[in-house]
Computed example of a mutant assay.
Amino acid sequence: NPNGAWQMIFGLNTLPEYRNRGVGGKLIGAFIDLAREEKRKGVILTCKKEKIPYYAKFGFVNEGESESDHGGAKWYQMRLEL
Rank of each mutant, 00 (worst) to 15 (best):
I44L: 08
D69N: 08
C47Q: 02
L80P: 02
G29I: 08
W75F: 08
H70T: 09
A5Q: 10
A30C: 12
N13E: 15
A5W: 08
N13Y: 15
N62V: 01
G4R: 12
E67P: 09
G42K: 02
A73P: 04
E38N: 09
Y55W: 04
I9C: 13
L45H: 07
V61C: 08
T46V: 10
F58Y: 11
K57Y: 04
L27F: 10
A56P: 00
I9S: 09
T46A: 05
A56K: 01
E63T: 04
E67W: 11
I44D: 03
T46G: 06
E37R: 15
E63L: 11
I28Y: 04
I32H: 11
G42P: 02
F10Q: 14
N3W: 06
K41T: 09
G4K: 09
R40L: 09
M8A: 13
L80C: 03
L27P: 01
Y18N: 12
L15G: 05
P53Q: 00
R19A: 10
G11Q: 06
K48F: 02
Y76N: 10
D33T: 15
L45F: 08
K26R: 13
S68F: 05
L80Q: 00
I28C: 04
V61T: 11
E63R: 04
H70Q: 11
N13Q: 14
I44Y: 04
N1T: 13
S66A: 05
D69A: 07
G42L: 03
Y18E: 11
Y55K: 03
G64N: 10
Y76S: 06
S68R: 03
T14E: 02
N62I: 00
I28D: 01
G29V: 06
E81P: 04
K49Y: 02
R79V: 04
G64H: 11
Q77W: 03
I32A: 11
N3Q: 08
L82R: 01
L45M: 13
E17Q: 12
K26Q: 14
Q77C: 08
P16T: 12
E65M: 03
W6Y: 11
A30Y: 13
E17N: 10
E67N: 14
E38Q: 15
E37Q: 15
G25K: 14
G59M: 05
L34H: 05
G11W: 01
A56R: 00
I32R: 08
C47S: 09
A73M: 10
H70L: 14
M78T: 03
N62R: 00
L45E: 06
G42V: 07
A30I: 07
P2Q: 14
G22V: 10
K51M: 11
A73D: 14
P53A: 00
T14M: 08
N20V: 14
P53D: 00
L34W: 04
E67Y: 14
P2V: 12
N1R: 13
L82Y: 05
Y55P: 01
I44A: 07
V61K: 14
